[in-house]
Nucleic acid binder design. Structure first.
Lengths: 367, 367
DNA sequence: CCGAAAGGGTCAAAGGTCGG
DNA sequence: CCCGACCTTTGACCCTTTCG
C-alpha cells in the first residue's frame, strides 16, 4: 500500500520518464517493487533466485551508477534493497522440472569435511558406555535390578560429569565454546537426553515399560512401589505413586512408545540426541551467536549423516520418509521433557523426592 | 461478540467449493466448468485458444499448487482437465456462444478424498484467512498497527472458535473424534500454532521483529511499550517490560529466527503446524488410542506430501535434507511454546496481564 | 433494465534464453 | 562463469455477453 502511495507521489512530480533508482538509467517500469532498469531487475532476480551472497571488498559504500554498476555486486544488491525491492516479489523458478535430474545423480555423494558427525558421536557414545561401568561401579554381567529414587539421584549426580565429557568428545565444536555457552547447551540437553536414553535403552532390551538408566539398573514403570520406597512424612507410598504415576506414564506415551513403534535404532537415537543438543536458541552474547550459527551447521550435518546412513542400509524404499518419521518424534521428546520437569518442580516445592539443588539445576532448561 | 456470530461468520463464507481445484487458491467462481482462480482460468483459456501442446519433462505427475503452479504446464493443464474444465467452453471467437448448462453439474462431484492431506489443509487455511477478516472486523486494506495486551486477548478469544473450525475443516479425521479427544488435541495445538503462525506471518512480511497476529495487527517486539500499556498497581510499565521482554525474545530466537534463516514457505509452515497437531501423546481411553494410531498415519501423510511438494518444486538438490532442516525446527517451537506458557502462568499468578480462565486454559497443554 | 457470473482482451511485470 | 538485450508467459484488471 505505502509503496503505491510513494509512487503516486513520485509520478505526480514527474510525468516524464522514470529512472532506475539503482543505477539512474532510464527505468523500464517497476520491478520487484521499485522503478528499475531491466538490467538491475535481472541482477536482483538472479541474486535472489540463486541465493547468492555477495561480499563487498571495500566498505559497503560503493558508488553505483549505470556505467559502474557492476563494480560491486554486494553494494548493487544492497542498493536494490534500499530502494525498496522485495525479495518476496521474486517468484519460484518455472520450467525447471527435469533439468536438475541429470545433475542429481552426481550430487548424490555427500561432500563432507572429515568424518561424519554422527560417527564421532557414536564413538564417544561407545566410550561413554564403558566409562559408565566404572563410574557406577558396575561389575561385569551384573543383572539389572529395580532402583529407587535415592539411588537414581546418586546415578545422575555422577552422570552430569560423564555426559559433559561425552559431549566434549562427541562434538569438538561444543568443547570450543565458552563455559557459559557450554552450560546453556548442557542444561537444554541433559534432561531430554536422559529421558530419551533411558527410554531407548528400555526399548532396545525389548522391555517397553522399563526405563533402563545409565548405571544399568532400571525403573519399572509398571511397578513404581520399588521406586518410591522412602517413607515420607507427608504422604503415604500409594498416595505418592498415584500422584506421580502420570509423570512416568508421560514418558511411555511420549517417548517409549514412539521409539518402539518406529523401532528406532542406535544411530537414529544418537541423531535425535544430537539434534536436541544443537537445537539451540542461544544468542545472548557473541559466543552464543557463534553457537547459533554452529548449531545450524551441526543440525544439517546430522541430517546428512542420517540420510547417508539410511541410503547405505538400503532397507527403506524412501529414506526421506523414514527421516521424516524419526524427526517427527522430536516434539514429543521435548514435550515430555518439559512436563517431566514440571513434575520435578512440584516435587521440589513439596520437598518430596526433591533433588539436590545442583542436580535440579542441571535438569532445568535455561530461560 | 457472541460465539453464534462467529459461527455465522464462518458459515456465511462456506458455500460450495470456494477454492481453485487446480491450485487451491481462493477461487473466483466457475471457469470453463470448474471452480478455479483467475490465473488458472486464464492459463486454460490461453492453452486452448492458442492450441498449445505442453510436454511434461517428468512423469506427468507433477505437483500443482498456487506457488508452484508454473513448474509444469503439461501437468497444470492435465489437472484442469481432471478437475472438469471443458475445452469446448473456451470460445474461439466472441460470436460463438458456449452452452454453459450441461457443464455446471460435473464440477460438483469432484472427490477430494485421497487428496493430499496438506492440500485440504491449505484450502482450509485460505478459508481461515478469509474468515478472520470478518471475525476480527477487518476493513479491506486497513494498515496493521501495534496492538496492546487487552486487544490481543480479545483477538484470541475469537481465535479459539476460528481455529477449532479450521481444524475441523482441515482434518476430517479430527472432526470425527470425541469432544474430549478433540479438546486435548486442541489444547496441545493452540499455543504453539499461535506462536508459530504469528512469527511466520511476521517473517513473511519481511519484518523479522514483529509478531503479526491473526487480526492483522502486530506486536512490535522491539518496542513493547505499546503492548504493555495498561497502568498496573504493582509494577511500572518499564518494570513489566523488563520482566517480560525475555518472553518475547524467546519467540525471536526459537521461532522467528529459524523461520527466517531457512526461509520457510507457507506449505512448510502448514506442514509444521500439522505435525504439531498430530504429535499427539494421547491414549488414555479408547478414542484416544484411535487418535494415537491416526496421528501416526497423519504424520506420515504430512511428510509424504511435503516431500512430494519439494520434489515438484525441484529447487533443492536434496529434498530429504530440506525436509530434515525444516523438521528440526520443531523442538524449538515446542520449547518456545512451553516457556511462553510458563511466563503466562507467572503473569496469571501475579494477576498481571492475566488471561481470562477459559482462554488461559485453552493455551495450556493437557497433562 | 439490472446485476451477477463467466466469457474475452490487455499489458505491466514476472520468467527464461543465450551471445558477448 | 556473470551480464543484460531480447523474447515468452503470467495474471491482475477491466470490458463484454448472457441470463434470471
Amino acid at each position: 500500500m505505502s509503496s503505491s502511495h510513494l509512487m503516486n507521489g513520485f509520478e505526480g512530480v514527474s510525468t516524464a520518464p522514470q529512472y532506475c533508482l539503482i543505477c539512474c538509467e532510464v527505468a523500464d517500469g517497476h520491478h520487484f517493487g521499485a522503478p528499475a532498469c531491466r538490467a538491475c531487475a535481472a541482477f536482483f532476480r538472479r541474486t535472489v533466485q540463486l541465493n547468492k551472497n555477495h561480499e563487498c571488498p571495500k566498505n559497503n559504500q560503493c558508488f553505483i551508477l549505470s556505467n559502474v554498476r557492476n563494480m560491486c555486486r554486494a553494494c548493487r544488491y544492497d542498493k536494490c534493497i534500499d530502494v525498496g525491492m522485495k525479495r518476496s516479489a521474486v517468484q519460484q523458478r518455472r520450467d525447471q522440472l527435469g533439468k536438475r535430474d541429470e545433475i542429481r545423480s552426481t550430487s548424490e555423494c555427500f561432500s563432507r569435511r572429515g568424518e561424519p558427525v554422527l560417527d564421532t558421536m557414536k564413538r564417544a557414545y561407545e566410550k561413554l558406555l564403558v566409562v559408565r561401568k566404572s563410574v557406577h561401579n558396575r561389575v561385569e554381567n551384573q543383572p539389572p535390578r529395580p532402583i529407587c529414587f535415592s539411588e537414581l539421584q546418586q546415578v545422575y549426580l555422577k552422570e552430569m560429569t560423564v555426559v559433559y565429557q561425552f559431549l566434549c568428545e562427541a562434538f569438538p565444536e561444543y568443547y570450543e565454546f565458552l563455559p557459559d555457552t557450554k552450560r546453556s547447551l548442557f542444561k537444554n540437553f541433559f534432561l531430554p537426553f536422559t529421558l530419551l536414553e533411558s527410554s531407548f535403552n528400555g526399548h532396545s532390551t525389548n522391555k517397553q515399560d522399563v526405563m533402563l538408566i545409565p548405571s544399568g539398573d532400571y525403573i519399572d514403570l509398571e511397578h513404581l512401589e520399588s521406586y518410591f520406597t522412602n517413607n515420607h512424612d507427608k504422604f503415604s507410598q500409594e498416595k505418592t505413586i498415584s500422584m506421580f504415576a502420570q509423570q512416568f506414564q508421560l514418558l511411555r506415551t511420549c517417548i517409549t512408545h514412539p521409539l518402539h513403534a518406529e523401532n528406532v535404532d542406535t544411530y537414529e537415537f544418537l541423531a535425535l540426541a544430537a539434534i536436541i543438543l544443537w537445537e539451540s536458541d542461544l544468542e545472548a552474547d557473541l559466543d552464543r551467536q557463534n553457537a547459533q550459527e554452529e548449531a545450524i551447521q551441526m543440525r544439517n550435518a546430522i541430517i546428512r549423516d542420517l540420510l547417508f546412513y539410511y541410503q547405505s542400509m538400503n532397507i527403506y524404499d524412501d529414506v526421506a520418509l523414514r527421516l521424516g518419521t524419526i524427526l517427527s518424534i522430536l516434539p514429543s521428546i521435548q514435550r515430555a521433557s518439559y512436563r517431566f520437569h514440571e513434575y520435578m518442580e512440584i516435587k521440589n516445592l513439596l520437598n518430596l523426592y526433591a533433588l539436590p539443588q545442583n542436580l535440579f539445576d542441571m535438569f532445568s532448561p535455561v530461560s
